[in-house]
C-alpha cells in the first residue's frame, strides 16, 4: 500500500514557505474535509435514517466507546486479535522455515497446503464452534487458521529461494547451522515473510470481526451487529469508524516495523533507483 507513496514527491520549487506548508496540508487533508462537509450537508438536508451527519456519529463515538465499553468490548477484541496475529507469525515462520528447508516435506505437503489455503477462512468458524465451543480459544484459533497461510506460504517461498552464492559462502566459511538460520536464511526470506505478515493482518482483522458477529456476546463485531439489529444507526457507524481506526492503526504499526526490519531491503532499492 506504500506502493505509490514514493511517487508523490513531485517538483516543488520557487514557492514561499507559507504556500508550501499550505499545499503540504491541503493535499492530505483537503479531500477528506471536503467529503466530510459534503456528507454533513447532504445528511442534514436529506434526513436519511441510514446516513446520520458526521457530528452525530462523532458524538455517538464518544458516548459509545469512551468508558466501560472500551474495557468490555474493545479490549477483549484487541487481545484476541493480538494473540491470533502473534500465534500466526510464530507458527507460520517456524513451520514455513522447516518446510522450506526440507525438500521431501515440501513435496509431501504442497498439494495439501494448496487446498487448505483455498478454503475461505470464515467457513472455518462453524467448524471451530463445533470443535471448541463458543470460547475465546475458538476465536483465536479461527484467526490463526486464516492468518497463518499467507505467512506460512511466503516463508516457504522465501526460505527456498535463498541465493545459491550466499549459501555457498556460508558453507565455505563453515558457518554453523544456527548461524546460517539466523544470519542467512531468515534475513534472506524476510521481505517475503513481511509481505505475508501484511496480508495476514487484514485477514486476522476480518476474522476477528466475523467470529464475533457470528458467535459472541462481547467484542467489537458483536457490538456493531447489535447496534444494527436495534436500529442504533449512529452507534453502528461509530463502530464501523472504530474498526477502520483499528485497521489504520495496524497498517501504520506494520509500516513502522517493516521499515525497521527491512531497512537494508529498502536501502538497496533506493540505491538501485538512482
Amino acid at each position: 500500500m506504500t506502493a505509490y507513496t514514493g511517487r508523490i514527491a513531485a517538483t516543488r520549487r520557487g514557492r514561499t514557505v507559507g504556500s508550501r506548508i499550505a499545499a503540504g496540508l491541503a493535499y492530505p487533508l483537503g479531500l477528506p474535509i471536503l467529503l466530510l462537509v459534503l456528507w454533513g450537508v447532504v445528511a442534514t438536508r436529506a434526513t436519511s435514517t441510514f446516513f446520520p451527519d458526521p457530528l452525530t456519529i462523532a458524538e455517538a463515538f464518544r458516548q459509545t466507546w469512551v468508558g466501560p465499553a472500551f474495557v468490555e468490548d474493545v479490549l477483549p477484541s484487541l487481545t484476541r486479535l493480538g494473540l491470533g496475529i502473534a500465534a500466526s507469525i510464530v507458527v507460520g515462520i517456524a513451520a514455513g522455515t522447516v518446510i522450506g528447508l526440507t525438500q521431501w516435506l515440501r513435496d509431501l505437503l504442497e498439494p495439501l497446503l494448496e487446498f487448505l489455503r483455498a478454503i475461505p477462512p470464515p467457513v472455518l468458524i462453524p467448524v471451530a464452534m463445533l470443535l471448541l465451543g463458543i470460547t475465546d480459544t475458538m476465536k483465536v484459533v479461527v484467526i490463526v487458521s486464516g492468518a497463518v497461510w499467507p505467512i506460512l506460504l511466503n516463508t516457504i517461498e522465501g526460505v527456498r529461494g535463498t541465493d545459491s552464492v550466499m549459501k555457498e559462502t556460508a558453507r565455505s566459511f563453515q558457518v554453523s547451522w544456527w548461524e546460517r538460520l539466523w544470519f542467512l536464511v531468515l534475513p534472506a526470506a524476510s521481505p517475503r515473510i513481511m509481505a505475508g505478515v501484511r496480508q495476514a493482518l487484514s485477514v486476522a482483522l476480518i476474522l476477528m470481526v466475523i467470529s464475533e458477529m457470528f458467535a459472541s456476546s462481547s467484542g467489537l463485531g458483536y457490538r456493531i451487529a447489535y447496534f444494527q439489529r436495534n436500529y442504533l444507526i449512529a452507534e453502528m457507524w461509530s463502530g464501523i469508524l472504530l474498526l477502520g481506526l483499528v485497521g489504520v492503526f495496524l497498517a501504520v504499526a506494520f509500516g513502522l516495523v517493516e521499515r525497521r526490519v527491512l531497512r537494508w531491503y529498502h536501502g538497496i532499492r533506493e540505491v538501485n533507483r538512482v
Partner: peptide, 9 residues
C-alpha cells in the same frame, strides 16, 4: 484498511 465485513451491518 477498513475491514469489509465491518460494512455488513
Amino acid at each position: 484498511p477498513i475491514p469489509s465485513v465491518a460494512l455488513i451491518p
